[in-house]
């Protein structure tokens, strides 16, 4: 049986798609057959972040509507074995996502894949609700910023009341926090919420802290999941988070400012 993960946040632009691409790639690198699905109907972006935008012929909605077979819409990643992308439609709207249709596609995928990762759109409307409805695990992507934290709490409420597991009285969707765009130096100056603050408020286990990093933009520019940039902080932080997701105990890195000598501090200031 495959496991269904939703990457969700409530708030837009916090790093769901970046994290979905990284996570799916990380799981595939560990040998799990993984598919990542774009639920952001009308605002397709996962294909760009994964670098497969020119290979999209059929999409998720075509499959739901019976206009294409699943095998026609699935895109196999060129770099990594075991990794597939199911892109969404750029032209339809979210009403195209019916619960029955989504369920059918997920059922078919679960026969073949170990992990099905759903990249949720922002908001708490149909697309977001559909992406989390069937989830076994939820990764809550949050920025250390007031509106993002509050929206994450909203989404936790939705997961606990409107997911399939909640509606059917099953074991609740497991929930973990992925704190992204974290800037330890601003935290130290008291300008940004600390990891511990966010954890205290949301009260869910911490999966990882992804630092604010220029590598993320560089990676998306070239259509490469940032986890493949092994030299970058963000890439390493995602690799750690995937390990923790799989049950490994890995210490959190990138949570404290890097110790700098006076010289490099001076250099930085003049840079």
């Amino acid at each position: 049986m495959s496991k269904i993960i939703v990457m969700t946040s409530g708030k837009g632009g916090v790093g769901k798609t970046t994290s979905s691409a990284a996570f799916a790639t990380g799981l595939a690198l560990r040998g799990f057959k993984t598919v990542v699905i774009d639920f952001d109907v009308g605002l397709r972006n996962l294909d760009l972040v994964m670098g497969c935008e020119r290979r999209v012929v059929f999409d998720f909605i075509n499959v739901i509507n019976g206009e294409a077979k699943l095998s026609q819409a699935l895109i196999k990643d060129k770099r990594i074995d075991n990794l597939y992308i199911l892109p969404t439609s750029q032209t339809r709207d979210k009403d195209a996502l019916t619960r029955e249709g989504v369920e059918r596609v997920l059922n078919d995928l679960s026969k073949e894949f170990d992990y099905i990762l759903c990249d949720s759109p922002a908001g708490i409307e149909r697309g977001a609700l559909m992406s989390l409805y069937f989830a076994d695990h939820a990764i809550i992507v949050t920025n250390p910023e007031v509106s993002s934290v509050r929206d994450s709490d909203r989404i936790l409420g939705v997961l606990n009341s409107r997911s399939r597991r909640a509606e059917q009285g099953l074991e609740p969707v497991s929930q973990q926090l992925l704190l992204t765009r974290y800037d330890p130096e601003r935290v130290e100056k008291g300008e940004m919420l600390k990891v511990d603050d966010v954890l205290e408020i949301l009260a869910i286990p911490l999966l990882g802290v992804i630092p604010e990093s220029q590598a993320v933009l560089r990676a998306s520019n070239v259509g490469m999941p940032v986890i493949l940039d092994e030299a970058s902080n963000a890439g390493q932080a995602y690799t750690d988070a995937v390990g923790r997701f799989l049950g490994e105990e890995i210490e959190h890195r990138f949570v404290n400012p890097q110790k700098k000598g006076l010289f490099s501090r001076l250099l930085r200031r003049s840079a």
């Binding site: 910023e145 007031v146 934290v149 509050r150 709490d153 909203r154 409420g157 935290v187 100056k189 008291g190 300008e191 940004m192 919420l193 600390k194 603050d197 205290e200 408020i201």
Partner: peptide, 18 residues
């Protein structure tokens, strides 16, 4: 620090919403 104020504001508004 503004981060301290952020935390306090969140705790209040979210207690209410929850």
């Amino acid at each position: 620090p503004s981060a301290v104020q952020a935390k306090e504001r969140l705790q209040i508004v979210m207690a209410h919403e929850r």
